[in-house]
Design a protein around this nucleic acid. Structure first.
Length: 558
RNA sequence: UGGGGUGUCGCCAAGCGGCAAGGCACCAGGUUUUGAUCCUGGCAUUCGGAGGUUCGAAUCCUCCCACCCCAGCCA
């Protein structure tokens, strides 16, 4: 409709279905199970599903696939909704729950029994596994496979009534124990679970399995294109089987795409939960987590995440996406939109010996080099200030473009200064630098023609503020931390978090609001922490560093 | 070894019989009061391999190879 050329195979399919009149309006759904927080992989799925609806003027539902109460909880239901909204997507109507369809699903199960397509099986889990056969050997029919419809109906009703213990009986479809597709070997439709459900309480003691529920949920909601990941491909024949054998008019179709595997990260709910439970990180929303909540706290923006998903495309091949692409997406967004500010992480005091002790000049600087609409801020300039210790050397080669004893450097948005003396402590460590300003160098090069080597950031010692700055890095130091039989916990990067308790920030930063992003010039992009930041005690998280070709080249001249 | 998939530059990805888009990364220059940004240029005679069909193949056919998924009463 709005699009003339499809950008991936799913769009091609939808466009064709629309053009051929097979569907009137495209309806998709994002169907998370509320058993964990959403991660970057889900973000891709969200972009794919909501994106398809958006692109073709259709609808997308948010449906909790809550068929297994044991691992689910309200906390996850809340976080998932917040994350989807934060990413900028709006689901159609109210949030849906698979559990709201439990009665309909049960009625359909009864129908299948009546049609002779399902039976109650008494095999326990162990026996069922043995009867199922292997990948290369056909399974054997359950001895309970030929119970009469009447007996099955009675047994199913009694399962529902709670007459049997967990694991004692299950309801299975009667399909083909010799099918080369394991999913078709009389799959389980209902199992007994005597636990309360977060939505239905104790109404049910039998719960439908994913296979028996998903397609029917789609049908109930009028979903036309049920998009999921590749590992469900083998389930499609079963998905279709249920739709075909049930009195259902709707005809949803399942399509699969390759899931996202970013390098240097893990995206399995089990592993992410383990990182949380083992306190490797502070929680699901720890800024190092690849969760949507974690990325949010880290300073990633919805626009960057969506851009990233668009960059990687949607295909049926599954590979590993270089996290550098995600990093590019966030740098691109923040470079364009984040106000600039100055922060000194490793303070070294500089005393400007030719600058009056009582003088304060309110210098004005743009908040962004190419976005005048972002306005300006005031930078108080004083006799004593801080620069980064890494930006000063008593001596260095010509490639070092910072302050060197006897040489000049430009203080960003302020004067050019020249260093005269390095004051050291008893251990010989430089603790203070004495320098002088070159007059009339704000906006001008020195009159004597001796230009400064470089530009460094600074913060007034008397007017600046102290802040806590958290320097985050990749959580894992291995490109594929959980590939094969690797123990991903062995690859947790020991330097994934470094906290700078007393960084100096320019005074304008006290006005920062939680979740507001900045570029601390020459350092990187930072965000005021969503929870811990306040005007009284500022806390910034490093989202991502600036590209640093100097460091990449080994920092020649250090 | 049964079934289902996938193989195009280091990574992602267009391409659908007419002679290899683009992005990331990387490299080389230029601009720059951020060693950032920005700009310019470079980066697959070759499409998992081998045959075949064709005037012509990454695109069609055959065989082979590699990798991923499936034996939960998880989703």
């Amino acid at each position: 409709m709005e699009k003339t050329s499809a950008s991936n195979f799913l769009e091609t399919i939808v466009a064709d279905d629309l053009a051929a009149g097979r569907v009137e309006t495209v309806v998709t759904r994002f169907p998370p199970e509320p058993n964990g927080y959403l991660h970057i992989g889900h973000a891709k799925s969200i972009c794919v599903n909501f994106g398809l609806a958006e692109t073709f003027g259709g609808r997308c539902n948010l449906r909790f696939d809550d068929t297994n109460p044991e691992k689910e909880s309200q906390e996850y239901i809340d976080s998932i909704q917040a994350d989807v909204r934060w990413l900028g997507f709006r689901w159609d109507g109210e949030v849906r729950f698979a559990s709201a369809y439990f009665q309909q699903l049960y009625d359909w199960a009864v129908y299948l029994v009546e049609q002779g397509h399902a039976y109650v099986c008494d095999l326990n889990a162990q026996q069922a596994r043995e009867y199922r056969g292997t990948l290369t050997e056909a399974g054997k029919n359950s001895p309970y496979r030929d119970r009469s419809v009447a007996e099955n109906l009675d047994l199913l009703a009694r399962m529902k009534a709670g007459e049997f213990a967990e694991g004692e009986k299950v309801l299975r479809a009667r399909i083909d124990m010799a099918s080369p597709n394991m999913n078709m070997r009389d799959p389980i439709l209902y199992r007994i679970r005597k636990v309360a459900h977060h939505q239905t309480g104790t109404d049910w003691v039998i719960y439908p399995t994913y296979d028996f529920a998903h397609g029917q949920e789609d049908a109930i909601e009028g979903v036309t294109h049920s998009v999921c990941t590749l590992e469900f491909e083998d389930h499609r024949p079963l998905y279709d089987w249920f739709i075909e054998h049930l009195p259902i008019a709707a005809r949803p179709r399942q399509y699969e795409f390759g899931r996202l595997n970013p390098s240097y990260t893990v995206t399995s709910k089990r592993k992410l939960k383990q990182l949380v439970d083992d306190a490797v990180v502070s929680g699901w929303d720890d800024p190092r987590m690849p969760t949507v909540a974690g990325m949010r706290r880290r300073g990633y923006t919805p626009a960057a995440i969506r851009k990233f998903c668009q960059m990687i495309g949607t295909t049926r091949s599954d590979g590993v996406v270089d996290v550098a692409m995600l990093e590019f997406a966030i740098r691109e967004d923040l470079n364009e939109n984040a106000p600039r500010a100055m922060c000194v992480l490793n303070p070294l005091k500089v005393v400007l010996t030719n600058y009056p002790d009582s003088q304060v000049e309110d210098l004005v600087a743009a908040r962004h080099p190419s976005r005048p609409d972002l306005g300006e801020r005031v930078l108080p300039f004083t006799r004593e200030l801080y620069i980064d210790a890494d930006d000063f050397r008593e001596e260095a080669n010509k490639k070092y473009k910072r302050l060197v004893l006897g040489k000049r450097v430009r203080l960003r948005n302020a004067y050019v200064i020249e260093a005269h003396e390095a004051v050291k402590d008893s251990a010989g460590k430089v603790v203070e630098v004495h320098a002088s300003i070159i007059p009339d160098t704000i906006g001008n090069d020195p009159a004597d023609g001796v230009k400064p080597k470089g530009v460094i950031q600074w913060v007034s010692a008397s007017r600046g503020r102290q802040a806590t700055v958290r320097l985050y890095d990749r959580l894992f130091d291995h490109e594929a931390p959980d590939k094969g039989d690797r123990d991903f916990l062995q690859h947790v990067n020991p330097d994934s978090l470094r906290v700078v308790e007393r960084a100096w920030i320019e005074p304008s930063l006290v006005q920062a609001l939680p979740e507001q992003g900045f570029q601390f010039e020459r350092e990187g992009y930072f965000v005021a922490d969503r929870y811990d930041h306040s005007e009284e005690s500022p806390v910034f998280n490093r989202t991502i560093g600036l590209r640093d070709s100097w460091a990449e080249q080994g920092g020649e001249g250090q």
